[in-house]
Nucleic acid binder design. Structure first.
Lengths: 98, 98
DNA sequence: AAAAGCACTTTGTTTTTCAAAGTTATAAAA
DNA sequence: TTTTATAACTTTGAAAAACAAAGTGCTTTT
């Protein structure tokens, strides 16, 4: 029998990063504050997970203004979408046998 | 929008514990050594994750003998099966929207 | 008698997670 | 115009988790 966890992506072991990705796959772009509220996190905690995802090049950041107020939004890169899909496929394969 | 990670079980954040559960849902009972080989882990690492799962009452342990050689097998409890199902349902809900 | 396997436990290091506080910049309120 | 507030962080530090490696006790094989 094959190792069922070998194809899981370590970056997505974190429930928070999994949550960020799943929200962004559906919503294309979400602001920092919306993510913070949706996932019920502190600023620092969210920022550090976003930075992990960004560092892996799974997310891109867009800093813009609404009026003269900053507005930072996040989106998934093609690489991120691909990596997430592979992870979900591995999860599905594990689960499907049940 | 609802927090998508609230229903995930913290115990199953770990890829290893996820792997153990997914193997045991399919296989009813698996020995320590088989788990060790299937998941490619060191003894200590596997033992500590099994202990976490056992402590949560998601696994039961069966110590028997094959001849006079000890043979320890693990299986999922009803509680473990239920908790795992809830977790998988939460995962599926997150993912299905994609 | 020595070596090896099983199923751990113990030890200690490394990594990860997280909250809280601090930071910089703008904006609205008093 | 001083104060207060909001956004989006970074830094700090503490707690928790993960992990490898070594040690343990028992048995079996050589």
């Amino acid at each position: 029998m094959k190792n069922p966890i070998a194809d899981l992506n370590k970056i997505f072991d974190s429930r928070i990063r999994l949550g960020v990705m799943s929200l962004l796959v559906v919503n294309v772009k979400i602001s920092f504050n919306e993510l913070k509220e949706m996932l019920a996190l502190t600023d620092g905690n969210l920022a550090s997970h976003l930075s992990t995802l960004e560092h892996a090049q799974y997310l891109y950041v867009n800093k813009s203004f609404i009026g003269r107020k900053t507005n930072t939004t996040y989106g998934i890169t093609p690489l991120g979408k691909q990596a997430f899909k592979i992870h979900l496929d591995a999860l599905e394969k594990m689960i499907k046998s049940i």
